[in-house]
Amino acid sequence: MKSVRTALLAAFLASISVGQDPAAGGTEKVRALEKQFQELQQKLQKDFAAVEKLPEKDREGAGDRIYGEFQKAAEQIADQVLTIATSDHSQVGFEALGAALSMQLVKAQRATVVELLTEHYAASASIEALLPRLRYLGGKTVDALLQKVVETNPSKSAKGTASLVQAQREKNESKREQLLERVAADYADIAVGGEKLGDIAGRLLYAMRNLKIGGTPPDIVGKDMDGVAFKLSDYKGKVVVLDFYGFW
């Protein structure tokens, strides 16, 4: 089994390295690399499913090996995407950076993405779509990129989105409150992902102020898993544990 898998992986890696010529860039190349990454993820899932069928003692080793192979292949695909982004500073380069952000990146690759976005696209209206993906990326360079968008981007909706992401990243509670209030004041009617920034900031402020120890949360009104309507307030007089969960 192992030699078959290794042979398949070798063939797969060989197919990726064809067309490494950076001059052959272009939207199609970016799309092709995105597709390669998706196929790699699907292969990973299939391989992990096969691992579940192994005897228990063999699973951890097999799983680690498979994931290691995945990481190596993913890094190579991302390197090719970043080669395009490094040499093209127009729409194609921007598409490559968007593609990179939806891939598995190592630290140095993430740093390159942020650097290129900051240098070439901070004032581009299309950067708005990528900003939410920066929310959980660590580092002052991401904060600097967001600030540059706020200061130099001509699109109010990009500025508003950047301001919201800045607020969500802020760890200091009272600073976060201030930033959210500013979003609610300056960008109230800007719609992002079907919801107005004023409403998003409003509910984040509400949660911050009320959903904490000593706070009284709003009622929850909804249906249970059998479709029967019920409310949190039906349980007044009882101690309640609320558990937000999933089997996933």
Partner: peptide, 24 residues
């Protein structure tokens, strides 16, 4: 809608309410 209203971004998230509905 409930997760968004409660600003939940990690799972599981637990809240313990007393018999008067106050988060403790």
């Amino acid at each position: 809608p409930i997760c968004r209203a409660w600003n939940i971004d990690s799972f599981p998230s637990i809240f313990v309410l007393d018999h008067e509905g106050v988060i403790q």
